[in-house]
Design a protein around this nucleic acid. Sequence first.
DNA 1: TATTGATAACTGACTGTTCAGTTATTAAAT
DNA 2: ATTTAATAACTGAACAGTCAGTTATCAATA
Lengths: 215, 215
Amino acid sequence: MTAEKPARSWNRRKQARPGEILEAALSVFAEKGYAAARMEDIAVKAGVTKGTIYLYFPSKEEVFKSLARQHVGDTLRDAIVQARDYQGSVRDFLAMMITIMSAKIESGHVAVLPKIIIAESGNFPELARFWREEVIDKALGMLSGVIASGQARGEVRADVLPEYVARLCVAPFVMSIIWRTVIAPTDKVPFDYRKFLSLHLDVLMRGLAPEGKQP
Amino acid sequence: MTAEKPARSWNRRKQARPGEILEAALSVFAEKGYAAARMEDIAVKAGVTKGTIYLYFPSKEEVFKSLARQHVGDTLRDAIVQARDYQGSVRDFLAMMITIMSAKIESGHVAVLPKIIIAESGNFPELARFWREEVIDKALGMLSGVIASGQARGEVRADVLPEYVARLCVAPFVMSIIWRTVIAPTDKVPFDYRKFLSLHLDVLMRGLAPEGKQP
DNA sequence: TATTGATAACTGACTGTTCAGTTATTAAAT
DNA sequence: ATTTAATAACTGAACAGTCAGTTATCAATA
């Protein structure tokens, strides 16, 4: 009855492994991109050896896709579904989005997958398609709905297409995310995303207000 | 006697090669990203063999960096310098930008380098820094100047920071560029960039107009 | 104008390395 | 004792970079 725990070299943890591997993969892919990410690095970070990864995933590509699916599913799909039934004003909705997103942008968590998608869209067109259908179309669709109901309520001028306005809404978010991953590491003075996005909200809502009706 | 066709195999074109190699490299890097781009592919596209590239560039990395530098220098720095002395209204300036850019975005020519920078900023941090100093800071600085003079003229409300407004101006351009490279290939119905950017201009200028002064 | 020798642009086969994926083996768990 | 999670050593393919040899070009000479 070895009461000792003599520095076990490894444990068997069948059901915990996939999640740990994906988490490790996220950080390695985030740093290196897809091609430059080594399976060995992912393994080390997950506390296993390379071979172990292949017990749970058939290939590097599949690790990547699983990661995309899981990360999208957890982080974004919930948010979209939750927001679908939103009843408040467009302004309040965007204000809420800013609060949630600026923290995530700051921390760098949202930024990783979009960056990889951009980088690898040429090598994995089906990934771009997946992202488009699962994230972009749903997010833009949801936002268009919010805008359209804002028009019905007289909060937003009626002579603009909700689908285009939706893209206007998200553009500064997209820019912030890219700034955060690509440019911010070279920054002396940190950029104030919340301030920037608040300005966006203010300018956008004025710009979309019906004639003679300041918000 | 070999009455065979001499089949002139190659020419000496010392001064033309570097440019041709970089041009080829641009299209291969754009399609594949840095790591997945093969020197052999670049060579074939440039009409030479792999060895020839190494007569003009010491390494793959140096081909990549030269490309980034040259392309920035040629395409963007000129435009920035030219625009620095602009005297017209903010609205006219942006309208001009939209005309020029939407054609370039449509054709896919502007899109390639930003995509590469985003993709490889993690692997080549000094490239991100170069891009930031040579392109982003100059472009934003120039735009901030245009905005500030718009404020002095009473065309733009005075209670907003030009540096932040400048970023608001470019965000939809950035989004369009990304859309074009990453998402558009999966599109059934082509996206109308000019229409989108015109909406942007309209909403932005209303949003930035001084109180009670519709543009 | 034709021939030739020198030079340097260019080629393509070769080398060493890196890394995704495989497999023989080990040890935990039951 | 059997099963299986996990390892670590291995394989093979892909590819960046090299270099000995080939060929276009041009200047000097005839």
